[in-house]
Structure formats: structure tokens, C-alpha cells
């Protein structure tokens, strides 16, 4: 040996080693000796058992119920999560496998060894049945739990996809409606005129079949702070509020409103600059206006 520690010196340090009470350098020396000394290995194993038993001297200590339950819940959550990952990996592995059966489902029966009595063979067989039975039960239970988790995940995924389909369908229907509102046989188109310095342009599409109004405008300046634009449907007797709107930063406007109106009643469409929230009646001159014919 070249470890520099005699057997006697090492054996005298085994108790402290078993208690993990040696300094690092001495510990390394003793371990180097133990690695090549069967007698010290046996002695150390026995002393470690003694050392381990010392923990039994600590008095049990009840935890506060909340703390106890908190730790338990975290442990089970961690274990459950780990199991789910393992089962998913197993399921994926199984899906990739081309074999008709999992190895665990194949039980190879072997003849008993020569010289074994019938009772011993029966006992072994019973043990095998018990082991296979327990293994089968655990396997089946894990598979059931995995399938249940997969079903729940699939249902959740299906729900998300259905919601996405519904959303897309609603968007599509809305676009269809808008196209109909702009291009339908009973759509009246009015060109908006403006005196504004930015020369905004716009058109009002009135789908008389669906009482739908769509204002499309360009280069509409952003109103001043605290102000907004308000759309008015003007009849010979009233100026009807059709809602307020703000242009996009690039000056583009698309406003949609639904309002029934007799075909002959509309005199004009106007847009005014109003205080935020809108006004009951226009308070400024129209910044855009179209006259019905």
C-alpha cells in the first residue's frame, strides 16, 4: 500500500469515519486504506449500522397540521408529476414499438429445476402467480391512470381547439357580413367630402337590407386630447347619434353600426369633432359629410 496510513491507524479511525467526523484529509487517507482492506470494510459496515441507529434517539416531533399537510401535498404533487412524465415517455416508447406486446406482458414459463419437490415447485409457481398478479395489477392501474390523464389532456386540448375553431368561424362570418355590407345589391355608397387640411377621404356603405352602416375613411387626423369623432345619420327632422370612434395612428378608419332607417329618410351622413364620450347633438361643424341622393 502506498496510502501512507497503517492498518492500525486506519482501524482506529473507523468509528469517526462512520460518524462522518473526520477532517477531509484524514478521511481521504482512511478511505484509501479501507478500499484495499477487507477487514476494515467489514468493520466500517458494522460501525455505520451503529451510527445509523443513533438517529432513533431523536424524539418524534409533531408538526403543525398546516405544515404537515403542505409538505405532503408538495411531495405528492412532485411524485405525481414525475410519474406522469415517466408514463408519457413510456407511452411514447410503446407507440413507437412495432412489437405486438410489451415485454412485461410476455411471461416465459420455465420448467422447475431437477430435484425440486412438487411442493417447492408449487410454492414457486404460487409466488410467480402472486408476483405476476401484483405486477399486472400495478401495471394495469398505472395504465388506467395514464389513460385517464391522457383523456383529460385530450379533452382539454379538444376544448382549446374547439374554441379556436369557433373563434375562426365567428371571424369568418363577420368578414362575410362585412363584404355583404359593402357589396350587396342594396348597398348605397356615399362619398364623404371634407374641408379638413389633411384632406381625409371616405365612403359610407349603407346596407339597407341589413340596416348595416360601414364608414371607411383615410388620412383622418387624430383628434386633440379629450376629443373624439362622432358619426351622425341626418334626417330632415333629426341628427341621429351613430357612435363615436377614433382613427388608427395611420389615419385609417373603419366604423360599423347597425341602425334601421327608412330608405327615403336619410338626408346626410356627417362626422363631427366632439368631447370624449360623444354629444347628444353635434357641437361643431362636420369635418366630413356625405349627402344622400
Amino acid at each position: 500500500m502506498t496510502d501512507g496510513m497503517t492498518h492500525e491507524a486506519a482501524s482506529e479511525a473507523l468509528e469517526a469515519l462512520a460518524l462522518d467526523a473526520l477532517d477531509a484529509s484524514e478521511r481521504a487517507e482512511v478511505l484509501a486504506h479501507v478500499a484495499g482492506c477487507a477487514e476494515c470494510q467489514r468493520e466500517l459496515a458494522a460501525l455505520e449500522r451503529t451510527s445509523n441507529e443513533l438517529a432513533l434517539a431523536a424524539a418524534p416531533l409533531a408538526m403543525a397540521p398546516a405544515q404537515r399537510d403542505r409538505i405532503r401535498a408538495r411531495l405528492l404533487a412532485r411524485a405525481g408529476a414525475e410519474r406522469a412524465v415517466a408514463e408519457r415517455a413510456f407511452a411514447e416508447q410503446r407507440a413507437e414499438s412495432s412489437g405486438p406486446a410489451r415485454p412485461s406482458e410476455v411471461v416465459t414459463l420455465r420448467a422447475p429445476r431437477r430435484g425440486m419437490g412438487t411442493s417447492a415447485w408449487m410454492a414457486m409457481a404460487a409466488g410467480l402467480v402472486a408476483i405476476v398478479g401484483m405486477g399486472g395489477y400495478m401495471s394495469a392501474r398505472r395504465e388506467r391512470d395514464a389513460l385517464r390523464a391522457s383523456l383529460q389532456a385530450a379533452q382539454a386540448e379538444r376544448g382549446v381547439r374547439l374554441a379556436a375553431v369557433d373563434s375562426l368561424r365567428a371571424t369568418l362570418e363577420d368578414k362575410d357580413r362585412m363584404i355583404a355590407n359593402l357589396t350587396g345589391a342594396q348597398v348605397a355608397v356615399m362619398t364623404m367630402a371634407s374641408q379638413s387640411p389633411t384632406s381625409p377621404t371616405g365612403r359610407m356603405f349603407w346596407d339597407q337590407a341589413h340596416n348595416a352602416w360601414t364608414l371607411v375613411a383615410h388620412r383622418v387626423p387624430m383628434p386633440k386630447s379629450g376629443r373624439t369623432y362622432q358619426l351622425w345619420l341626418v334626417t330632415p327632422t333629426a341628427k341621429i347619434n351613430a357612435g363615436t370612434f377614433m382613427p388608427k395612428p395611420d389615419g385609417e378608419v373603419m366604423v360599423r353600426a347597425t341602425m334601421a332607417m327608412p330608405t327615403d329618410s336619410l338626408a346626410a351622413v356627417a362626422v363631427t369633432d366632439e368631447p370624449m364620450g360623444g354629444s347628444a347633438q353635434p357641437t361643431t361643424a362636420p369635418m366630413m359629410v356625405a349627402t344622400a341622393r
Binding site: A58, L61, R72, L75
Partner: peptide, 24 residues
């Protein structure tokens, strides 16, 4: 074998004892 219920049972049985050692 992956049975987390067994972990719960073992915890129920020994948490106070483990707690006693750790708190020492």
C-alpha cells in the same frame, strides 16, 4: 414501482420522526 400513494402513507407514518431528527 411508482405508487405515490405509498409515499403518502410512508410520510403519514414517519413524518414526525423525521421531523424530530431534522429539528435536532
Amino acid at each position: 414501482s411508482g405508487d405515490d400513494r405509498a409515499l403518502g402513507t410512508l410520510y403519514d407514518r414517519w413524518h414526525a420522526v423525521v421531523h424530530g431528527v431534522v429539528a435536532r
